[in-house]
Computed example of a mutant assay.
Amino acid sequence: MKYLLIAACALAPVLLACSKSEADPAIAADSGCSELVVMPATAHAISPAQVQRANVLFAQNSLDLNRVRYVRFWHDSVQTYYPPYAPLVTDHVSVDEYANGLRIFTNQINYAFKGGVLYYTAGTLTRGTQLNAQPALRVPQLRTLFFAAVAAFDPSNLGLATNCAEAEFGYYNLNTAGNTTENLVKAWKVAVKGMAYPFAFFEDNGGRLIYYDNGIRTFR
């Protein structure tokens, strides 16, 4: 997986520039290690050969490949018992959707192409947003919010606060269940650098916690 890490907003691109004038002064900035993650749509998580194949599939099925990031590619085949008796190959491509150059954290779409022709789509395509791509919160403030959430939900993991936090700016659909109307807000995904869990999503406007996940699953 390719992405850029920019410490504490230094050298951030214009679209992800730190906006001190808009940042909520009520949220203190943690001086500990914090890094901005920039994940462009071109930073595909699959191999170059798979990217090339996915590009062909999208192009020949008139799908927009300019606002998606490929995150998974695999294929399977079924032996046919009629001429020409060749296996029928199905390619599967999972993508993250983007708007205004930013990842929509809640929009992963799965496409299936049978014999090169799209026949199945899982997920709901975004309608886009009128929101801009300018963040209000700064990465050190996200570090404060994140480790406060860790303290609240995972008090046994307080030692994580000695680690570096990384934050990615994007959009989050608050209405992910059912057929409700899409409601995108500017948001951040924050995690401990180098760890899959815990992670959290915070709304950019005011820093409200949207979702926290420590990776623990209970099955009954």
Rank of each mutant, 00 (worst) to 15 (best):
E166P: 00
N173T: 11
I216D: 12
A196T: 09
R127C: 12
L5F: 08
N173I: 06
T121K: 08
L118Q: 10
W74P: 00
L5V: 08
R217S: 13
A7L: 09
A12N: 10
A49I: 11
L131K: 04
C9A: 11
E168T: 14
V38K: 05
A10V: 06
V14L: 15
A167Q: 03
A23C: 07
I6K: 10
I27M: 00
T176P: 01
E166N: 06
A26S: 09
D154C: 15
V185W: 01
A41C: 13
L36V: 07
Q79T: 10
I6M: 12
W188D: 05
G128V: 09
T106D: 08
T176G: 15
G123M: 02
Y172G: 06
N100T: 01
K189G: 01
Q52K: 10
Y171M: 07
R220W: 00
L125R: 11
L118N: 07
F146E: 10
N205G: 03
G178R: 15
I216E: 15
I216N: 14
F58E: 03
P83L: 13
T181R: 07
G215K: 10
F219S: 08
S31D: 15
L145I: 02
R217G: 01
N175M: 05
H92P: 03
A136P: 01
L57Q: 07
T106H: 08
C164W: 02
T42M: 04
N183V: 00
V68W: 01
A151L: 03
A12I: 04
T180F: 13
Q52T: 14
F201Q: 00
V93L: 12
P25M: 04
L36I: 11
V68T: 11
I46R: 05
G159F: 12
C164Y: 03
Q52A: 15
K186W: 04
P40F: 07
L158N: 03
Y172K: 03
P135G: 11
V78R: 09
Y85L: 12
F153H: 15
V139T: 12
G159T: 11
A112D: 05
Q141D: 01
S34R: 04
A200Y: 03
R208I: 04
E168V: 06
A23V: 06
I210W: 03
D24G: 01
P198N: 11
A8Q: 14
T180R: 13
Y211C: 04
E182Q: 13
S77N: 08
A122D: 12
P135E: 11
A167E: 04
L131D: 04
R220A: 11
A41V: 12
T106G: 11
W188T: 02
Q141L: 03
K189R: 12
F105V: 04
T129P: 06
P25I: 02
V14S: 14
P155F: 10
G128N: 11
L102D: 02
A149T: 13
V89K: 13
A10T: 10
K193N: 09
Y119M: 02
Y3R: 08
D24S: 07
Y211R: 10
V37D: 02
C164S: 14
Y197D: 08
L4F: 08
I46F: 13
R127I: 09
N175D: 09
P48N: 12
N179R: 13
N179Y: 14
V117I: 14
